[in-house]
Simulated scan of single mutants.
Amino acid sequence: MRVAIAGAGAVGRSIARELITNGHQVLLIDKKPSAIRPERVPDAEWLLADSCELSSLEEAQLDRCDVVIAATGDDKANLVTSLLAKTEFGVPRTVGRVNHPNNEWLFSEAWGVDVNVSTPRIMSALVEEAVTIGDLVRLFTFRQGNANLVELTLPEDSPYVGKPAGLIPFPENCALVTILRDGQVYVPSQDQPLESGDELLFVVSADKEEELERLLAPSLHGG
């Protein structure tokens, strides 16, 4: 897979190293000469250019890319890069970094962003996930299908403690994908019993989140 990353700062370089380790071809783009440091990611291609300029993206041959990641520290630049990648070059997948939470609503399909990644939101979700029991924590939003990745730690008074997962009447458009227990990852099966303290990861539509909370933690959510 060929991936172009706009922004060769610490975030962009870290993403590039990870993708290269996984066998992908990476192009790093930055308009600041001081950011062009090929020795820091020697296996990547480097381009000194402004990703907000159409001519620069033509030079980068974005039409050959499978994914474009807009990872600069400037939300305006990330939006423009994503929009150009999607509308002018038909890039199949775009990922936009959100630096300021107030701008998150802009990072949508209207601006050519398939997936937005908000560092503040991720950090707050991780804090919530670590300290809450019985409350649903939204970890990630999928642009396609209006679905979210959510986590709920099963409280000890849940009516489904000890019950097999296959017998739980989960809402429609809701799927239990993983059970985290004692540091282990379990792929849920129909006869897998749930235990108090299990961290349950679901993919669920936004309009079914409250119903899921009421089902699994009725004492907290009036189910």
Rank of each mutant, 00 (worst) to 15 (best):
122 I>A: 15
141 T>G: 08
140 F>M: 05
160 Y>A: 07
125 A>G: 13
127 V>M: 08
130 A>R: 08
122 I>T: 14
131 V>C: 03
144 Q>K: 11
112 G>R: 02
123 M>T: 07
115 V>F: 03
135 D>L: 00
151 E>T: 05
149 L>Y: 04
127 V>I: 14
149 L>R: 01
155 P>V: 09
133 I>T: 15
145 G>V: 01
137 V>L: 12
119 T>Y: 05
133 I>P: 03
140 F>S: 01
133 I>H: 02
150 V>S: 09
132 T>D: 02
124 S>L: 13
114 D>N: 14
131 V>F: 13
122 I>V: 15
145 G>H: 14
130 A>D: 09
160 Y>I: 09
151 E>G: 00
134 G>L: 12
125 A>E: 13
140 F>D: 05
132 T>F: 02
137 V>Q: 10
152 L>A: 01
111 W>R: 06
131 V>M: 09
141 T>D: 13
157 D>I: 02
159 P>R: 05
135 D>H: 07
163 K>L: 15
142 F>P: 01
155 P>N: 10
155 P>S: 10
161 V>A: 11
129 E>A: 15
121 R>H: 14
121 R>M: 10
158 S>T: 03
139 L>V: 10
144 Q>M: 05
136 L>Q: 04
157 D>A: 07
149 L>K: 01
124 S>A: 12
150 V>R: 02
163 K>E: 15
112 G>E: 05
151 E>C: 04
126 L>R: 12
153 T>D: 00
125 A>Q: 10
131 V>Y: 14
114 D>V: 10
140 F>R: 06
153 T>F: 00
121 R>C: 02
149 L>N: 01
155 P>R: 10
128 E>C: 09
139 L>I: 15
120 P>E: 13
157 D>K: 05
142 F>W: 11
162 G>C: 06
133 I>L: 06
118 S>Q: 01
142 F>K: 03
155 P>M: 09
138 R>F: 05
163 K>H: 15
131 V>K: 06
157 D>E: 11
111 W>A: 14
142 F>A: 09
136 L>S: 06
163 K>Q: 15
131 V>W: 03
125 A>C: 14
138 R>E: 15
157 D>Y: 04
154 L>N: 01
137 V>I: 15
119 T>R: 07
140 F>A: 05
124 S>D: 06
130 A>Y: 06
151 E>H: 05
132 T>E: 06
156 E>A: 07
123 M>Q: 05
119 T>W: 03
116 N>K: 14
114 D>L: 07
160 Y>V: 14
140 F>T: 01
158 S>L: 02
132 T>Q: 08
133 I>Q: 10
144 Q>V: 04
120 P>I: 13
137 V>W: 11
159 P>G: 04
147 A>K: 00
148 N>W: 01
156 E>P: 02
121 R>S: 12
161 V>S: 09
130 A>Q: 08
129 E>V: 09
138 R>D: 11
157 D>N: 13
138 R>W: 04
139 L>C: 13
117 V>L: 14
127 V>Q: 04
134 G>C: 13
